[in-house]
Design a binder for these strands. Structure first.
Lengths: 276, 276
DNA sequence: CTGTGTCCTATTGTCGGACAATCCGACATC
DNA sequence: GATGTCGGATTGTCCGACAATAGGACACAG
C-alpha cells in the first residue's frame, strides 16, 4: 500500500549525501549504488501468509460473518502446512476479532470485529502513547456534541424511553454505587446508537473505555457530580424529544465541559496519563 | 502435566443466592433455579492466559517499549507451557501490535501499537460493518474542522512549511498522478500532527485509510477536483498562518463538504459501502 | 583499519506425531 | 419430553526434531 511508504523505517539512503561524496571523491572508486535500487526481499513466515489469506477472504466477504471455519486439520491440508502453523494464524485473526469462538464451542466462526474489540485496541494504543486526560477530553468535546446533535434528528421514541430508563437508574443509584459509572457509559452508548453512525460510535466507545476508570474516581470524590450529570442527561433527553439538534449539541457540550470541571474539583490533574 | 490443572473445571458453588429463591417459592414443587446463580466457569485456554499476562506487563510498563522479549524457550519454561503455546500467545500480541519484529530480526521487541495498526483494525471493522461513504464523511465533518481549528492555535512554523511543501507537491502533480491521493492524505496527516492530540489523530487516520481508495477514484473522475482541493489547502494554510481558528474550521468544513460534492459529481453514490 | 570469510551458538519457523478433553449428534431409555 | 450413553470430530496441549539464519567472535587480506 502506498500510504505505508511514508512510515517506512528504512534509513532512506537518499542519494543526496552519497552523490555528493562520490562527486568530490576521485573517479578511482566505482560509485556506490545508494538509493533503493532493490526492494527488500519478501520473507514472510507461513503463519502470516495463511492469516493474510483467510483475512482477505473474510474482508472480501467470500467468508461471510457467521460461517463456521473449517477445522484446523482441513485448513492444514489445504494450505499444506502443519496444524501448528494454522493455529498461529488463527490466533492472529482471533486477536483481530475477525474470527471468534462462541463461549464453550469448539469450532470457530467468522465474525466482524465488535466495537468493544476495536475500542479496546484503541485504548491500549492510547495508554501506551502517554495520552493524558485532556487529550481524551478534547476529543470528547469534538465528538460528543455533534453526536448528540445527530441523535436529536434521528432518534426513535423507543430509544428515548431507553435513555430515560438509564438516566433514571443513574439518578436513583445510591451515593457510592460502584456501577454508576456503567450507567453513565450506557447513556453515552445509547446516545451513540441514536446517531446512526457506526464510525462515530466506534470513536466514542474508545473514548468511553479510556475514560471510565478515572471517571469512577471523579464521581466518588465529587459529591455534586451525580446531580449535575443527572441534570445534564435530563436536558439532553429533552432536546432529543424536541428534535432540537442545537439544544442537544449545546447541552452535551456543557455536559462534557462539566466533566473537566469535575476532574479539577476532584484534584485530578488534566495532565494525568490515562492508564490500564 | 501441570498445565492440565489450570484447566480443571471448578464448579465455584458460591452459596450466595440459593436461599432467597427457595424461600419465596411454594414447598409443593421443588423450585426451579432461574437466575444467574452461578457464573460461567472460566475455562480460558493457556495461550490466552499467557498473552494476557504479557499484555498486562506491557500495559503496566513493566515491559517497556523497545525491550527485547525473552526467547520463546525461556518464556515456555517460565510459564511452564510448551513452546507452541507461547507462540500462539505471541501471535496474538503481534496482531495487536504490542510486540513486533523489526524486519530481518529474530527476537521480538515490545512496542506500542503504531497508529497505522490501530487505524487498519478500525478500517477492517468499518468495512465489515457495511459502513457507507456518508457515514465516513459525516465523521469527517465532525472531526476535521475541529482538528483544523486546534491546529491553527498550535502549529509551528516548521509544520506550516511542511504543509506548504505537500500542498505545492499536490498542486504541481500531473493530472493523472496515481499518488496524488497520498499527498492529500499526507496533508491531512500533517494537519493532524499540528493539533497535538493523539486521540484525534488516531481517529483521523482511520477515516483517511477508509476513504483513500474511493478518493482516488473521485479525483480521477472529476477534473476540477484537483484545483478545488488545492485551493482549499491554500486557504487552510493561510488560516493556520494567521492562527485564525475560526477560519481554519470554516475552510476545512468547506473542504470536506467539497469531497461529498466531488463524489456526487463523479457519480459515486453516497451509500456506496466502503470496501477492501 | 576497514572490509571479508569462517565458525559457533542462540533462536526462530516449521514439521510430524501424540493424547486427553470435550463438543456434537445420534440413539436408547424412562 | 427429559435424561443417560456412545462414538466420532475437533481442539488444546504436549513432545521432540530439524533446517535456516541472526548475531557475534575472530582471523585474514587488502
Amino acid at each position: 500500500m502506498s500510504t505505508r511508504d511514508k512510515n517506512k523505517i528504512l534509513p532512506d539512503a537518499s542519494p543526496a549525501g552519497g552523490g555528493r561524496k562520490a562527486a568530490n571523491a576521485a573517479a578511482s572508486r566505482p560509485p556506490v549504488i545508494a538509493g533503493n535500487l532493490f526492494d527488500p526481499v519478501e520473507r514472510e513466515p507461513a503463519y502470516t501468509r495463511v492469516s493474510a489469506a483467510i483475512e482477505a477472504k473474510i474482508l472480501s466477504r467470500e467468508l461471510k460473518s457467521g460461517e463456521v471455519l473449517p477445522p484446523e486439520t482441513d485448513l492444514a491440508q489445504q494450505f499444506r502446512v502443519h496444524r501448528s502453523t494454522i493455529r498461529e494464524a488463527l490466533r492472529q485473526l482471533e486477536s483481530a476479532g475477525l474470527v471468534i469462538r462462541p463461549p464453550g464451542a469448539k469450532r470457530m466462526i467468522v465474525s466482524r470485529p465488535h466495537a468493544d474489540k476495536v475500542a479496546s485496541g484503541m485504548r491500549q494504543a492510547l495508554v501506551l502513547h502517554n495520552v493524558s486526560f485532556v487529550d481524551v477530553w478534547e476529543a470528547m468535546m469534538v465528538i460528543e456534541p455533534e453526536v448528540a446533535a445527530l441523535a436529536a434528528t434521528r432518534r426513535t421514541l423507543e430509544e428515548i424511553d431507553a435513555l430515560i430508563a438509564v438516566s433514571n437508574a443513574f439518578g436513583d443509584s445510591p451515593q457510592s454505587d460502584p456501577n454508576a459509572v456503567d450507567l453513565v457509559s450506557e447513556f453515552f452508548e445509547l446516545l451513540g446508537a441514536c446517531a446512526r453512525n457506526q464510525v462515530l460510535v466506534l470513536a466514542k466507545q474508545s473514548l468511553a473505555q479510556v475514560l471510565a476508570p478515572s471517571l469512577a474516581q471523579m464521581i466518588d470524590r465529587v459529591p455534586q457530580a451525580r446531580s449535575r450529570i443527572a441534570e445534564a442527561q435530563r436536558k439532553i433527553i429533552a432536546a432529543l424529544q424536541n428534535k432540537d439538534a442545537d439544544d442537544a449539541r449545546k447541552w452535551m457540550a456543557k455536559h462534557v465541559r462539566d466533566f473537566k470541571r469535575g476532574y479539577e474539583v476532584a484534584g485530578i490533574s488534566p495532565e494525568t496519563l490515562v492508564s490500564m
